[in-house]
Design a protein around this nucleic acid. Structure first.
Length: 796
RNA sequence: GCCGCCAUGGUGAAACUGGUAUACACGCAAGACUUAAAAUCUUGUGCUCUCAAAAAGCGUGGGGGUUCGAUUCCCUCUGGCGGCACCA
């Protein structure tokens, strides 16, 4: 039977016997939640990257099932998003239809690749039954003061006609299309993730993420400790320059309050309130502000060589010595960070120094080479830390922290996303507040209406704004005439919490029952790409922690993901990233047509370490194919001539069980396969005869990697039912014990010879006798025996 | 610039808590089968010295250290990858 027929046969069987891969709710077994990031169902189907990471997850899931865990290994679709919307526009189809076609295709491909997903738990972020709960989460955020509408400048992609989160802007360009991003001020929903900054850092301690992931999260949050210090603005010319009475002091943020004696000027950003105030009647300042506004983020960061700026005309009073220091305006100070104002210490900060040199400002050194304070009166001689403490004790400044993490702009002006379930009511606004009213829970989901045109509008509004009977509605609070929010949510919204929905996918009264959360959470292993280590991981941890805080999730499990694995990347045969333009794309389905699914799976797992980057190599794939051929012909020969009556290969079989188990458990799939190769090589070279039980054990060991071959032979040797319901073979420990031990003998650390002994008695003497040649005439000054490892003789 | 990670044959890579470095596979070479090729099988394969073998020496990016013993631990340098970056 060829592999095509075998695959068809068993795929049908597995489809008809779905309980094989179901995660059973009533099970008394210990649970294991294995999660792979769900894909965006694009039109081009499953690519090698998917095949690779899903196979890894699948092998692991199958192994843990065999080890007796109740494994939950679900799959779904992160289906909202721009590519589908764009494709729908281009092909004049409905996004709903495009999504259905694509997910059907993905599902078929996944089934063919034998991924043992529990399909009864499939989720799709774009169906109303799912996004009802995404909307519900938004309402909870709003009710708890973590979502609000703000007028704010956003990153605007002129090509996609969409607002972008900071996260979606890479080097000042749109992450998706590469167009240069500009600024626009739009009224936007903002989710206040910054309130969770510390919790998100602290929570990392409860996880087992690798250092790389922890660091990128910590860097992204960017906590920095320092002080806010208020400086009085000198009265001398304040009145003449500004007609306002309000701004009489200037607050700065600094991480180095100890250097306050070195502060020779202040810098405020062009968007700082004080700058804006001054700009109204000062031409030079106004002109500078206009120039700064014109610069995109890209330009502002590219132009980091030459500093620009303008003097404000004002002076601040240095709180510690009453010295008058000038206040400058420059765009190297960002309005969005800290207070938008700094005290400049040019002697100890590169940027301040460049600025001071350009504009001829004073530079005072306050730290000497030993890291002690100088030129600082009462602080002289102190260390930096001591000086900081002293400053605080003098009542200057207040200890605070700042974060690089920004609040999360949650509005998108596009069609294919979750409608934000908010209503604007003029009447309610009149009684205070912004006038934003949450939709009633019983009215959820707010269903995305089917429309004829999905194109974003040129004025930057969502296409939903054109649909009158969607926009016009009754206020859920007062019942008056109101209008519905027409913005939709970003892609991340649906993927923030999908791992919870898998646990209870058809519940229509809660997003997930607490019992099921208690049963299955946390995710034991979360497999995904490095590109999601900051954004997706941070957003979903935030949403999870928020739901814990408001009591919607039992607080026993504080973090959603315990371990994070970042799967590797497969490059094209030319060692380059696969891309259509390079023409180096490998399509897993095409390779499977040629060699069979099991060869593809085994090859993907054998290529290299699961977390590594490796290039596709057809020759190595052929090696793996040869190995599987050898495996099958070994079984075939043995069955043809009859099974051996005694277990002749039990030593190598048991050793292999032991080793493969360890390798599978630690995601060492490449070495797991190598162990089976060794086992087969040994059986062939020693011409060992196999019993039926031994053949079955070998099939069981291969079942996670090559499910079709294993299933086919499992039945060929006379079993009924599925091999994928069997347990992992037990290691018989007695076969692991060596009768003789081989011990290398080293002289001065260099291995010279080997001895074979039955026990450790007098082993040093035996070693000395064997190594006589090297130690003759020398004095042995030290004898070391490491049990079962080696003997080392130190001679002079 | 700051933070994190990595560096082993011709190639992809193994090596448990410091204990025989290079498992497994690719490639290459020789041989068997064949009219021939493909496929398959067998043998060899870190480097130097050697016709060959034995023996010896050298070998995990460079240098230094700890240790009886270091791919593994420490310091330092070099090169590469990833994250952050006018963030005060």
């Amino acid at each position: 039977m060829n592999f095509v027929e075998v695959e068809k046969k068993w795929q049908k069987y597995w489809d008809e016997n779905r309980e094989l891969y179901l995660a059973k709710e009533g099970s008394t077994k210990e649970k294991k939640y294995i999660l792979v990031e769900f894909p965006y169902p694009s039109g081009s189907g499953l690519h090698v990257g998917h095949a690779f990471s899903f196979t890894g997850g699948d092998v692991y899931a199958r192994f843990e099932r065999m080890k007796g865990y109740e494994v939950i290994f679900p799959m779904g679709w992160d289906a909202f998003g721009l590519p589908t919307e764009n494709y729908a526009i281009k092909t004049k189809q409905k996004p709903q239809k495009v999504t259905k076609d694509n997910t059907d295709k993905f599902r078929d491909q996944m089934k063919r690749l034998a991924f043992s997903f529990d399909w009864s738990r499939e989720v799709n972020t774009s169906i109303p039954e799912y996004y009802k709960w995404t909307q519900w989460i938004f309402i909870k955020l709003f009710e708890n003061g973590l979502a609000e509408k703000q007028e704010m400048p956003i990153n605007w992609c002129p090509s996609c006609k969409i607002g972008l989160a900071n996260e979606e802007v890479v080097d000042g360009k749109c992450e998706r299309c590469g167009a240069e991003v500009s600024k626009r001020t739009i009224s936007q929903w903002v989710v206040k993730i910054t309130k969770y900054a510390d919790k998100l850092i602290e929570g990392l301690e409860k996880t087992d993420f690798i250092e790389k992931v922890k660091m990128s999260q910590i860097n992204w949050i960017g906590r920095s400790e320092g002080a806010r210090i208020k400086f009085q603005i000198s009265n001398d010319n304040f009145q003449t320059i500004s007609n306002s009475q309000i701004t009489k002091e200037l607050e700065v943020f600094t991480t180095r309050p100890d250097t306050i004696y070195g502060a020779t000027f202040m810098v405020i950003s062009p968007e700082h309130p004080l700058s804006l105030e001054l700009g109204t009647n000062n031409e030079a300042i106004k002109k500078y502000q206009q120039e700064a506004r014109k610069k995109s983020d890209l330009e502002r960061t590219e132009l980091n060589k030459e500093k620009t700026g303008v003097f404000s005309g004002l002076y601040a009073i240095n709180s510690i010595n009453n010295k008058k220091i000038p206040i400058w305006i420059s765009d190297f100070v960002l309005a969005s960070y800290g207070t938008g104002a700094i005290m400049s210490v040019p002697a100890h900060d590169e940027r301040d120094c460049a600025f001071a040199k350009k504009f001829g400002l004073e530079i005072i050194e306050v730290i000497n080479e030993e890291g002690k304070l100088i030129n600082s009166f009462e602080l002289n001689g102190l260390t930096i830390e001591e000086a900081k403490q002293k400053i605080f004790s003098l009542g200057i400044g207040e200890k605070t922290c700042n974060y690089h993490l920004r609040d999360w702009i949650f509005s998108r002006q596009h069609y294919w996303g979750e409608p934000i379930p908010m209503v604007f009511c003029k009447e309610c606004a009149r009684h205070g507040g912004q006038g934003w009213v949450t939709e009633k829970l019983e009215n959820l989901p707010i269903v995305l209406p089917e429309v004829d045109a999905y194109e974003p509008t040129d004025d930057g509004k969502s296409p939903l704004s054109k649909i009158e009977n969607f926009v016009k509605c009754k206020c859920p609070k007062c019942g008056g005439e109101a209008t519905r929010e027409t913005d939709t949510m970003p892609n991340w919204a649906g993927s923030d919490w999908y791992f919870l929905r898998y646990l209870d996918p058809s519940n229509d009264t809660v997003f997930c029952s607490p019992e099921r959360i208690k049963k299955w959470m946390p995710v034991d292993v979360y497999i995904g790409g490095d590109e999601h280590n900051t954004l997706h991981l941070l957003y979903s941890r935030f949403i999870y922690k928020f739901l814990v805080d408001i009591g919607e999730i039992p607080k026993e499990v504080a973090e959603p993901y315990y371990r994070r694995m970042s799967h590797g990347v497969i490059l094209g045969p030319d060692n380059q990233r696969m891309s259509k333009s390079r023409g180096n794309v490998i399509v897993p389905e095409v390779v499977a047509d040629k060699y069979g699914v099991d060869v593809v799976r085994a090859y993907l797992m054998f290529m290299g370490p699961f977390e590594g980057t490796m290039a596709w190599n057809e020759k190595t794939l052929m090696g793996v194919k040869r190995f599987l051929d050898r495996f099958e012909s070994l079984l075939d020969n043995q069955i043809t001539k009859g099974y051996a009556s005694s277990n002749g290969a039990d030593v190598i079989i048991n050793k292999t069980i032991d080793k493969m188990e360890k390798e599978y458990r630690s995601f060492g799939f490449n070495t797991a396969i190598a162990k089976m190769m060794e086992c087969i090589n040994e059986i062939n070279t020693q011409k060992l005869e196999l019993s039926k039980a031994e053949i079955e054990k070998m099939l069981l060991m291969m079942a996670p990697v090559t499910p079709y071959v294993a299933e086919e032979w499992w039945n060929k040797v006379g079993n009924s039912g599925s091999i994928h319901q069997q347990s992992w073979p037990e290691v018989e420990k007695k076969f692991l014990v060596e009768k003789e031990i081989k011990i290398p003998v080293a002289i001065n650390g260099k291995v010279r010879c080997q001895i074979v002994v039955e026990n450790e008695e007098g082993i040093i003497e035996i070693a000395k006798k064997e190594a006589l040649k090297w130690i003759e005439g020398k004095e042995v000054v030290k004898e070391i025996y490491v049990p079962n490892r080696m003997v080392n003789l130190v001679i002079k």
